[in-house]
Design a protein around this nucleic acid. Structure first.
Lengths: 202, 202, 202, 202
DNA sequence: GATGAATGAGCCTTCATTCAT
DNA sequence: AATGAATGAAGGCTCATTCAT
């Protein structure tokens, strides 16, 4: 039996993340190795190439689909406002992690190997789909009135994403996350409810 | 009396933009020079360094403030829906140019020399301010009812930005720009109007 | 545990010396690397920059101070002629190494980092001081008669330095080193002795 | 008739000298042009190449042969001490100009085109020859007693050269030029005279 | 003749990657 | 498995030189 691995992949990834986030993709591997407390050789034993390491470091685990299930489970019952707010908070949290990395990858010029993500739909869009399904379902259930759920979903996620974006890029916040999400949900629902109210009398 | 200038700075910037957007900041200057049909030496005669060229290429002229004036001029008169849609279309157009470049700069690891942008407020946030002022003004004029105009502005711009973002990153569009903006404005106004209607009876 | 060092710093320095002496400071590092049988990258691993390498290559170890001690030890005893000839031969040998390098450094335009030689007195002048002290001591001992030992020291070293200089620059020798030194010492001593003889009768 | 030359070659040479002396051969032509108040193009109209300009700038006009003639004219008559001191002062003056430039050229790695100086004997050596002839002549005339005039000449010039050298390189002076030369001549003559005196009694 | 814009070869230096322990 | 010495390809940048007025 050879000697056991004494280097944690996680340690490397953490260091890589930190350095890449600070210096961009042109951060040099030597610095990452130093920051991780590991020899440069080991870096390349654990990850075939710098690009690989970069992608691995920028990868963000899906974060579970619990929120999706919770959201969809609430269709037809409970308070949509609460359901949406809960989902919004969760999404915002996740976007704060996801977006900067996505941005890094996109700006790095590194071409993502297709065989790793075979035709996979990018996360942000997947999320939009989920929201869209929710809106559609509630509309069908007669609890919301939305003319174009898909666009509304885009809009919803967009507002969240932009919040995260402004925060990481400029350190700007128009409100706390909670308030922001609340206002967002409120706006959407008001618009949806109105539609319903108006249509109802007819 | 000397040889006349035969290289347009614009030509270089265009090429640089193209290459940087494709390959990231690590695009090599040789390629940019070739793409611009210019010698590498000339690149550095026109821009002191690669970083300088990069920033110049990513810089996006404000694009005029006509839309701001038009928007604010409409306060109290005319149809807010039309005013917002017009502004929205314009902003979306601009964001499609601005955002990717902003992202590039941020992810490049190039530190922006402070003396160039002395405490300047980043464009996207400036725009949010304008929108916020508009919402506030219309609310004061009694034509809209918004509890927190600043957040609504954030939300409005966020939806637009995310549209541009999804388009450039994933080639995804939930709708045409016109329809998207229309829906966005509609949502906002419905929510705002509702508020007004409800309060009115009281 | 890691790959053992296989490059001797001395090997690089030797090659650098050879090339720099032939081509001047503008010798290219690639050639030095080739001449040393080493990759260009290794050059810069061992010496931070070309200037560093250059200075290190031109640096000439003091060569010991044995001659100084021997010279000063002979004050008052033994034959001054022999002592001076021995010192002269030694100095000439050393100057042949030192002067060309000193010249190179001075003409290279490379600014020597101060922290390396903090106010250090340049070698040739140090040597002049030693000689000066010797002449003074022997004069005090009544074995030589020199009106201005310091100038005589300058003169002595000057004659040696110029011999080395003419040899390296023009390949010119008015005599073999031994004969040259002998004549030089003879000239100095004759002048010194004369003085004594003349004064003695008084 | 074309327009008359309005650029003085002398102006360029002066500037070149200044810059080359400060920065070594790697001084860039642009700076020389600027310092000379001339366009870079003009530099190359006046001198085929940088190396040419460099050599021209480092070239030092012979400075006349008046001193030689004066020296040789004094053979057999007048005070040798005065003649040698006068020649020494003159030579020292000239060496102060010559040596640094010679050093520059030698360290530059620029190979002097042979067809420009076809087999020409370098100045310092020419001078040694003149001195050597003088010493020989005076010895023949019975006014000096030198066993090896050529070596003594080397020694004489060497002492002068080293003075100039120490001055330019280290800013070191053991005495004023006048005193230094005086001491040098004194030393040589004492040695020579002694010889004569001693031999005479025999 | 004088200018300075344009050029492109070449150089120093970095850095991802490999290799010998 | 881990190390860090060694590598060499590549890139940013300079600068001598040419060219079009």
């Amino acid at each position: 039996m050879a000697r056991p691995k004494s280097i944690q992949t996680g340690t490397i990834l953490e260091a890589a993340r930190k350095v890449f986030m600070r210096d961009g993709y042109q951060a040099c591997t030597a610095r990452i190795a130093r920051e991780a407390g590991v020899s440069e050789g080991s870096l390349f034993k654990h990850f075939k190439s710098k690009a690989n390491l970069f992608l691995a470091a920028m990868e963000v685990e899906a974060g579970g689909t619990a929120w999706e299930e919770r959201l969809m489970a609430g269709v037809g019952k409970g308070d949509p406002r609460k359901a949406l707010e809960s989902a919004g908070i969760h999404l915002l949290e996740q976007l704060r992690l996801t977006l900067p990395r996505l941005m890094m990858v996109n700006a790095s010029g590194v071409t993502i190997p297709n065989h790793d993500l075979p035709g996979e739909i990018p996360h942000p869009i997947q999320k939009m789909e989920v929201l869209s399904r929710y809106f559609t379902a509630e509309t069908r259930a007669g609890r919301l009135a939305m003319a174009s759920p898909r666009i509304q979903a885009h809009l919803f996620l967009g507002a969240l994403a932009h919040y995260a974006w402004c925060e990481t890029l400029f350190g700007y916040r128009s409100a706390t996350p909670a308030v922001y999400v609340k206002t967002l949900v409120d706006t959407l629902l008001r618009a949806a409810v109105t539609l319903k109210k108006r249509e109802a009398p007819k």
